[in-house]
Amino acid sequence: MDWITEILNVTWNFIVLFLNENIPLVVGSVKAVIIAVAIMSVVPALVWLERRLMGRFQVRLGPNRVGPFGLGQPMADTVKLLFKESIIQSSADKFLFHLAPAVVVITAIAAFAVIPFGEPFEVFGQTIEMWGANVNSGILFVFAISGMGIYGMVLAGLSSNNKYSLMGGLRSSAQMISYELTLGLSALSIILLTGSLSLVDMVRAQETYPFILVQPLAFLLFFIAGIAETNRAPFDLPEAEQELVAGFHTEYTGMKFAMFFMGEYINMVTMSALVTLLFLGGWNAYGLPVWPIVSFAVKVFFLLCVFIWLRSTFPRIRYDRLMTFGWKILLPLCLLNLMVTSTVKVIWFP
């Protein structure tokens, strides 16, 4: 039996050695799991919040039967969706039909990986950073990944072999192209101010004051484009239920449908987090005695409530007007803002 002990010993030594050599990898993996689980468990809470808030806005109660304050409702819904039969119509492209919801959710979660939510802290001699990955081009990473999320919607629209889905998919791609531009250009003025693409650096640059004070127009443009980017009302054209039945996810049932839903809500959180980081000072509390992470969470929560508030207030904008609005109003304003910002920066703060 000596050889078994020998093998176990060697394996054990190897593991210990590996862990000692690769502590960042272990910490990184644990963080990745925590962030992914946290972001996915935010979704049911957010669905509950949206339904309750919308209920209040619309003189009704919202879910209040399952558990205290209806908190169990999202769980019950998830269980229902899990057990639902997944119907695929015979004329659909099966591979793409299965792939589309996965693309949406994976990109949504991946985009959140570079979102920082606090300063690093020391524990057991190890520096734990409060972000999944500090990519030095953090903001570009978010834009690239969230742009890929649209592929999921386009694929869903194409593979369903349903004309309403197709139109939803086409709308989402057109919408993405016109609003990604505004999103990027309005973020560019912040990049000009900080001189860095890293989200952490951007937050550190706002230690004295948040950038919303110096860039109010960029904030507004970024937020509007962000709503359009996440396909939320009043820009929810790809899934306009009164026109396109349910848009790109008309043919989806069960958990695959829920994955689109999840993707939308995660994108909402990512967008709120991005607005917080870029314009509202991230985790800086500006003298208020709260933990950085609390300051960050409160700001994100507030923005999420604004998302919900807008949904219950505005009618839906029309497709051609959405394009006109994006190209003829938002984009020129963005360029103007960028021009003014760079001029001021070059002349007064070289």
Binding site: M54, F57, Q58, V59, R60, A233, P234, D236, A240, Q242, R311, S312, T313, F314, P315, R316
Partner: peptide
């Protein structure tokens, strides 16, 4: 009609 155009709240009012 408002719901068709996307204004959900008017519907419930």
């Amino acid at each position: 009609h408002a719901l068709d155009i996307g204004a959900m709240t008017v519907f419930l009012y």
